[in-house]
Deep mutational scan, measured.
Amino acid sequence: MATGGRRGAAAAPLLVAVAALLLGAAGHLYPGEVCPGMDIRNNLTRLHELENCSVIEGHLQILLMFKTRPEDFRDLSFPKLIMITDYLLLFRVYGLESLKDLFPNLTVIRGSRLFFNYALVIFEMVHLKELGLYNLMNITRGSVRIEKNNELCYLATIDWSRILDSVEDNYIVLNKDDNEECGDICPGTAKGKTNCPATVINGQFVERCWTHSHCQKVCPTICKSHGCTAEGLCCHSECLGNCSQPDDPTKCVACRNFYLDGRCVETCPPPYYHFQDWRCVNFSFCQDLHHKCKNSRRQGCHQYVIHNNKCIPECPSGYTMNSSNLLCTPCLGPCPKVCHLLEGEKTIDSVTSAQELRGCTVINGSLIINIRGGNNLAAELEANLGLIEEISGYLKIRRSYALVSLSFFRKLRLIRGETLEIGNYSFYALDNQNLRQLWDWSKHNLTITQGKLFFHYNPKLCLSEIHKMEEVSGTKGRQERNDIALKTNGDQASCENELLKFSYIRTSFDKI
């Protein structure tokens, strides 16, 4: 039985969820670079991206490699990797027998973001014989899940209580170790020597080791999670996991709180800001991140802002960003909400898709409305799209047979046209069989910064309504002859009103 693990408890099935942008060198404390989270699957090609990484700022997932063999891993080693800020997950990587050479110096898994409450997941690794993470000293947050690894031993010899604050939620089941077939031998045991430290858990006094050649490092209890030197002297209180010299914040392997210019500090002093819960960055760093993602459509890219001495992905609820200094300031009234469309555009074809934009005031991208039916549609669209004030790209209304009016965009005031449909149009209306009105132009103002209007096959939309939009939106004169079809717009509506004058002759039985 794995020490510190839980057996036999019912657990939810383990679901495996399925960018080499360097964020800056980590400095003297770390020998390499800070790398983003990685999802490495199918083959070993991307694994080489770990070569210079000291910190993975995010998670590391290595999974679904069915053609790899043990010899493929023999020359692979990433000794610079010290810390993973989120979680480490391995799933069905064939041929991998140990992690001792792959990650010989991995010391800390912070667990800032977890995989279903777990910071370390080893699942269905069919050839893994031992973990071998002999320098792993601290899992700051989260638990361990090690399950269905039929060859995995050296679990009962690990004292997880020396690595985690609590072992109650560890789930370590259905491994070879369960069948008591392992016969784990710690260093020196074969020669009758006791080389590794022994600890007591559940009444068992057991030597602690990761492999037959690597003991588990056990520091004096007084050192807590700070770690200790090879001689057993406690590291500085700002260290986490390990250090090369005692009581020196510049000799830590990793930091308990924050890293700044080669030393570990309790908090980031001005003019620095907390970033990702582990390091200090200056304003320029946060500003660069903001600008890199301002026009990016890459998933996970955030326009970072500053709030409460932190550089964070977005302002919290009730705050909006001051564009001059990136500071989050309290909103006066309802907060603006910028919604970034991942692929640059979004099609609204149902109430469900409209709900995804609920509360958005600025759309960074283009909207395509293609709704053919739905219950209580006008009210639903207004509830979900009615706060949109600005669209950076274009607005396209296409084959939306259920629409009679666009009044559900009740606050839309600006279409920038930074991206144009077919390279020309910022407003595009095609084949809307029941569209009769755009907006009530006596109450609604709309500016279209650039781009043209396109109207074709809107049989109940009168040309007068379209011409009014040209005047109000500032697009009059931009359109070419064929942009607004004269014969297919309003051709099934009563669009022309003329005053009919009647004269009559009164007659009676005795007068003409």
Rank of each mutant, 00 (worst) to 15 (best):
C239D: 00
D184P: 04
V206Q: 14
R256A: 10
E168R: 09
P220W: 00
G95N: 07
P104Y: 01
I40G: 00
K176Y: 15
T107F: 05
F91E: 02
I84V: 03
F258I: 02
D248K: 03
L106F: 02
L233M: 08
H127R: 03
K176S: 07
C264D: 00
L29V: 05
V55S: 02
S225H: 13
S213L: 10
V265I: 04
I312F: 01
V34S: 03
G111R: 00
T157L: 09
H307S: 11
L120I: 14
P249G: 04
T189H: 14
C215A: 08
I158S: 07
C223Q: 05
S237K: 05
Q303P: 13
M38V: 08
Y134V: 14
N308H: 07
L164T: 08
T250H: 08
S143W: 11
F78K: 03
F283H: 04
Y94T: 05
S143R: 09
C293M: 02
Q303T: 11
V200T: 10
A156D: 01
W278V: 05
Y94P: 14
N257P: 00
Y118A: 14
G203Q: 09
R110C: 09
R74D: 07
S54K: 02
G262P: 05
E147Q: 12
L152F: 01
C186A: 12
G333V: 03
A230S: 04
V200W: 05
I201V: 14
N308T: 07
S112W: 08
V121P: 00
S324P: 14
S317K: 03
D159I: 11
P330V: 14
D75M: 09
L76V: 13
Q299G: 06
S284R: 13
I185D: 07
N105W: 02
E238Y: 04
K191M: 13
A254S: 04
C223M: 02
Y118P: 00
T199G: 07
H291T: 01
N179K: 15
G232A: 05
C293P: 02
L133K: 01
V305P: 04
R279E: 02
D177Y: 09
L260T: 08
I109R: 00
R279Q: 15
L164Q: 04
M65G: 06
L155R: 04
N135I: 00
Q204A: 08
N42S: 10
H307D: 15
V144R: 01
I82R: 12
W278R: 02
I139K: 01
F78W: 03
N149K: 01
C235Q: 00
D165W: 08
E71L: 08
T107C: 10
L102I: 09
G232S: 13
M83L: 10
L174T: 14
P249Y: 03
V281I: 08
K80M: 09
F73S: 06
N309G: 12
C234V: 01
T107M: 06
P249W: 07
C268T: 00
T229F: 07
Y118M: 14
L332I: 08
S161G: 09
N43Q: 13
L64Y: 09
A230E: 12
E57W: 03
V34H: 03
V121C: 07
F103W: 03
S296A: 11
N257G: 03
T329Y: 12
D247W: 05
L44H: 07
N257H: 07
L289Y: 10
Y319S: 06
